[in-house]
Design a protein around this nucleic acid. Sequence first.
DNA 1: GATTTTATATAATATTATGTTATGGTCTCC
DNA 2: GGAGACCATAACATAATATTATATAAAATC
Lengths: 305, 305
Amino acid sequence: MKQKLRLRQLEALMAVIQHSSVTRAAKELGVSQPAVSRLLADLGQTLGFSLFDRRGGRLVPTQEVHFLQADIQRVLDLMDQIEEVSQSITERKAGHIRIACLPGFATNHLPAVIAQFLKDRPGVSITIEPDRPERILEWMIDEQFDFGITDGFRGHSAVFSTDIDVRTVCIFPDGHPLEKLSEVTAHDLANDKIIHTRRDSEFFKNLATAFVDADTVLTTLVETRQFTAACELVSHGLGVAIVSELDALKFVDRGVQARPFLPALSHRLSLVRPISKQPSAITLEFISAFASSLEPFQALENAPT
Amino acid sequence: MKQKLRLRQLEALMAVIQHSSVTRAAKELGVSQPAVSRLLADLGQTLGFSLFDRRGGRLVPTQEVHFLQADIQRVLDLMDQIEEVSQSITERKAGHIRIACLPGFATNHLPAVIAQFLKDRPGVSITIEPDRPERILEWMIDEQFDFGITDGFRGHSAVFSTDIDVRTVCIFPDGHPLEKLSEVTAHDLANDKIIHTRRDSEFFKNLATAFVDADTVLTTLVETRQFTAACELVSHGLGVAIVSELDALKFVDRGVQARPFLPALSHRLSLVRPISKQPSAITLEFISAFASSLEPFQALENAPT
DNA sequence: GATTTTATATAATATTATGTTATGGTCTCC
DNA sequence: GGAGACCATAACATAATATTATATAAAATC
């Protein structure tokens, strides 16, 4: 067999099998009858055995053809499927996005955003990997993931980042004296033990400065990495915390009250992605959707970070 | 997407993915580099998204392509497989043969012939369906089977048949007085009860004539359809039978002795196939192989049937 | 059984896909 | 900054696939 099998020949073959007629097959394929005749002739030549028997006006496939029929059909179906999928890809309805995020986001805000995003995109799948910021950074650098949600990001030449400052609020258990205030200052917290983020974090430094400026001593109760942990502790009646409004919202009506904190502090999130790897269109679309989802929580431009 | 996906484009895509280079891919495909460049350009155009990112001299597939890669590979593999199989078909190494045969052949002679036939034809598969001659005939007429082995066949306009007359022998249990003879005549059987085929069978008529001609009475012990059953009975020490040498051979050394019977009677087998359905080459090859396998048992041309 | 109808094959030819060579731009590597 | 590798593009040749026109053979009709 010197000639290669051509896809068009197989299409013609299947169409003729289906209709038992070259003419009808040609009609289905939308081409002239002689075109199909030749495709079949060439295919028969290539394969080395005859494809059809004439039987009272109809064409019936030979047993040899019958033997190949299933495989041929599978090829044609697969080609159709590839076309469909790539169609979906261009319409941003298919693809895969690998997301690395802070543990809090994996359970808190992100799932809702993903659910909404996938609603109109049935072919899209997503991987979520929660971990510490250091690890997220590594993953961006060696391009293991398409998109990262992190904080405390200081910039890196291999990582493209969009920073978003979200508002923070003061939270405390139901029944706490602060309940009576409509907003809370450092001064109001003089007698409270505070649950806050790690001392080396940017956010803690801002918080400490606020206390110093208010001539108030900051008394530590618990030092934690995650806002969610702080919220959890407060909801169990323990102490007071300053956390991102994003996290706090999930805990109101769960034994926690929230009030704006003054001076307004913001918490800087970084939406990151590998800089040299061209992101897929669907990834960019998701990052944009995620950024939008944070807008309601975004701090004013001029707020200190 | 107005343009259709072409197989050649997918081949080019996979080759470039594999080698991370258009030039090397072109070398593998055995064409010039610009040819591959264009195939990729056209494919990218058709699909609607870019296929590769440049990354320090190498080409890495975009995530979109990665998403399709498995399916594309499957299509190419399937095409290769189809080529291989059809190659096997033309070399008569693949295909399927449906055989309808007398019950005796299903267990007796046929298996050995099939085993030999399949030895050099790994892709060939065979269906064996044992049944009565009437049913075999029906199956030929409506083309449910490719090949039939039957007897008592009277001809039919929808069935093509090749008749083969096989020798018959007289068989009897070890220790029987006939043991002393080197050949047996009807006269020698005057005092024996005979196991023979059905009275309406052609072969019985010939046998009866031989007895009449020898002025001997034929005493029936058992009337059976199959030679194998007759052999089985004889091997249990019961009576005497005239059966085809083909069947008899399987029972010598199992308590049965065989001697030529005079006058020489033959048993007519018919190798049949549907007349209007063009048989596959592999079927014809098998029929021919089967006919050859009967040669050692074939009666002389001029023997009465 | 002659004739019309229908289905398919073949021939001549246009169009599209796929190949070639020639060439210029861009990137990497030194 | 220059050499070499790599790729894209242009101009053109060839092969695959389409077209229309027509011949041929089988099926259907009278």
